[in-house]
Simulated assay, not measured.
Amino acid sequence: MADLGNLIGRLLIAFLFLGGAVQKVSDPEPVVQMIASIGLPGVLVWPVALFNLLAAICLIVGPRIQIWALVGALYCLFTSYFHFQLRADPWQVTIVVKNWAIAGGLLILASQAPRRFYLWR
């Protein structure tokens, strides 16, 4: 049961990263604006989209699932900064908490490598 739970958890989190990649490629402007809002070049949307795609694939099949989980957790914590808009849009606080919860799940995954259901470590 633990191995199946690990796989299902990885799939669910990977779908989130995959959705992020699709969103950034199909409509990059909102992310470009968020990136630009902290003084970074909006063109960073493309490496971020690629990171989202690679994270999704590597969380499912490997390699280095634990490292990808740790990096993904750090990414989720970092991107929370963009959504921390208490006064401007209270709904964004929900996204912050969601990102923290995903980071927590990824940290658990990073600490407990899958024993089965992956192509390579």
Score class of each variant (00 low, 15 high):
91 W>L: 14
96 V>T: 04
21 A>R: 09
86 L>K: 10
36 A>F: 13
118 Y>E: 04
21 A>M: 14
42 G>F: 10
110 A>K: 04
48 V>H: 07
73 A>R: 00
45 V>H: 04
101 A>D: 13
106 L>K: 10
89 D>E: 07
27 D>H: 09
29 E>Q: 14
93 V>R: 12
85 Q>K: 13
114 P>N: 09
75 Y>A: 01
79 T>K: 10
49 A>L: 02
100 W>P: 00
12 L>V: 11
79 T>Y: 13
70 L>E: 02
98 K>Y: 10
69 A>H: 08
65 I>M: 04
91 W>F: 13
90 P>K: 05
36 A>E: 12
7 L>I: 12
10 R>F: 01
69 A>K: 02
29 E>C: 08
55 A>V: 09
39 G>K: 11
116 R>T: 04
70 L>N: 03
11 L>A: 04
85 Q>G: 01
67 I>D: 04
65 I>W: 06
80 S>L: 12
41 P>H: 05
77 L>K: 03
42 G>I: 03
59 L>W: 02
43 V>Y: 14
59 L>S: 08
48 V>N: 06
44 L>F: 09
23 Q>N: 13
50 L>S: 06
18 L>C: 06
75 Y>H: 13
92 Q>G: 02
30 P>S: 00
58 C>W: 10
52 N>P: 03
42 G>H: 08
91 W>E: 14
120 W>N: 11
65 I>K: 04
23 Q>K: 15
42 G>E: 03
1 M>Y: 15
74 L>Y: 08
85 Q>P: 05
66 Q>F: 14
27 D>V: 12
37 S>M: 10
27 D>C: 04
78 F>N: 05
38 I>Q: 09
76 C>H: 03
